Amino acid sequence: MRPTVFFFFSFVSISLFSLSCTHTLRQSPDCMSRFLPERFKTLADRMRTDEEIDSLNKDAFLSKQATSWAHYNSDRPTIVHYDAERRGPLERLKHAGFQKRLVSENIAVMPAQATEADILASWKGKKEEENLLNPLYRNVGFGLAPFKQGCVFVVLLTE
């Protein structure tokens, strides 16, 4: 009698999976994700239109410089308008190769829940609002960086 050989094949299926736990945190979204410079520009342009002043033109170079300056300030304990070499906004732009004669810089430190309208309201009747409504300024750049419990927002305006 011939022995019967049984072959059993066992297929082992290994499932790899990961478990992820999510915790719902009750906090306001940070200003870096919810504050939109374009929305700020729309509101600023509306103010300019109310004063019969042309809208601002967004400038990519100015936005790059404003963002750089926002990050420069985010690494400091306080907000400044002058760098370590004592260069203000006009000198910094010239150093970066941008030849303008007239430059203004508005800086706002804002809590995480601040809106674009809140920033404009905080500038009401101040030099920052005067800069935004100056008809000599036609170009604008915006920069945003995290700062302490919120963000620092930089606006550069040029002719």
Rank of each mutant, 00 (worst) to 15 (best):
Q27P: 01
K41H: 05
K126D: 12
S15R: 06
F142K: 00
P37A: 04
F147Q: 04
S15D: 06
R48I: 05
R92P: 03
A60G: 04
D83I: 02
D118V: 06
N57F: 14
T24V: 13
P3T: 13
C21Q: 10
F7V: 13
S55N: 08
D30P: 08
N73W: 00
G97L: 09
Q65M: 15
K124Q: 15
D30G: 14
L156N: 14
T42K: 13
E130K: 15
S104M: 09
I107P: 02
D59Y: 02
R2E: 15
L43Q: 13
E85Q: 15
D83E: 00
F98A: 08
E85F: 06
Q27A: 12
R26H: 11
G88M: 03
Q113G: 06
F61T: 13
G143H: 01
K126P: 01
W123Q: 03
I53Q: 05
G141H: 03
S74A: 11
S63E: 05
A145Y: 00
P3M: 10
D75R: 14
V109S: 06
K124E: 14
P146W: 02
T42I: 10
S33D: 12
L157A: 03
E91P: 01
P29G: 11
Y137H: 12
R26A: 08
V140I: 15
A108L: 08
A112S: 14
S28R: 10
K41W: 03
S68L: 11
L19W: 01
G97N: 10
A108H: 08
N134V: 03
E91G: 04
Y137Q: 01
L157N: 04
K64V: 04
V155D: 07
F147K: 04
M1W: 00
W69V: 02
S18K: 12
A121L: 11
S74E: 02
M1C: 06
F17S: 11
K124I: 02
W69P: 01
L132H: 10
G141Q: 00
R26V: 08
R87Q: 11
L93S: 08
N139E: 12
Q113H: 14
N134H: 04
V152C: 01
L102K: 14
S18C: 12
L16K: 10
L144G: 01
S10N: 03
E116T: 10
F142Q: 04
G141Y: 02
N131S: 15
I14D: 02
R76C: 00
E85H: 07
G125Q: 01
L25S: 10
G150R: 07
R92H: 07
T67E: 12
P3C: 05
T42N: 10
R86C: 01
F98P: 01
T24C: 09
E38K: 11
K148E: 04
A60H: 08
A145D: 05
G143R: 00
S74H: 01
L93G: 09
F142L: 05
L43W: 04
R138F: 00
P111N: 14
F147Y: 15
S15Q: 12
